[in-house]
Simulated scan of single mutants.
Amino acid sequence: MATIDREIISFSKEELEGIEVPHDDPLIISPVIANFLVTRMLVDRLGLPRNLLKPACTPLIGYTGYSIYPVGITELDFIVGEAPRTSTIRASFIVVDISDPSYNRLIGRAILTALRAIVSPLHLKMKFPTIGGVGEVSGDQKRSRVYYQLSIPRGTSLRDPPK
């Protein structure tokens, strides 16, 4: 019987090939959520009727101090990796109604813990144990930089304090 507890997860210098270093680019991945390959799509645009969402009453407060009230919470299957090294978990997603075209979801500690994932921001890569061996997903540095630029409001500086 295969076990996922015996796998060693590591990152090598060779895995840095093609990545401009040093960098502080975010890791952006494209998992499959509810049978849809998700890249920049908002969770509530997956065709989920709002009446199927559980209520969420606590606002989300961003890094800039901006807050937004969620539309609701839903649980969906979250799949990462490529066969035969994939991992599937049932994850809760907070659905928000925003127009920011850069990031449409954040993968937080709960999902990383459930996947038993190890993230290397330097390598722009996430690895996780699976029954088939160590699974991995890599980010795209050029795409990350484009999305980051889209997330900055026009006419503001990265040094502007939150309002």
Rank of each mutant, 00 (worst) to 15 (best):
T113W: 07
R143F: 10
G155S: 06
T156K: 14
P22V: 02
S99A: 10
I111E: 09
L16F: 05
T86K: 15
M1P: 07
T58A: 13
Y69L: 14
V32G: 00
S157C: 08
D100A: 13
I152W: 04
D97H: 08
A114H: 08
Y103M: 10
M1I: 11
F36D: 02
P49L: 08
P59H: 05
E82L: 09
Q149K: 14
F36Q: 12
P153A: 05
L37N: 08
E136S: 14
Y63E: 02
D25V: 01
P70F: 07
I19T: 00
E17Y: 07
I79N: 03
I68P: 00
P162A: 08
I89M: 08
L122Q: 12
C57G: 07
T58W: 01
L37K: 15
L112I: 13
L42Q: 05
R159E: 15
I9L: 09
I73S: 04
F11V: 03
S120K: 04
E17R: 13
S157A: 06
V146G: 01
L42A: 11
G108F: 07
H23E: 01
L53F: 14
R45A: 04
D5L: 10
T3D: 12
R40A: 10
K163I: 11
T113Q: 12
E14V: 02
S151A: 14
L158Y: 13
Y103W: 06
L42P: 07
V43R: 03
D100C: 12
F36I: 15
I131P: 04
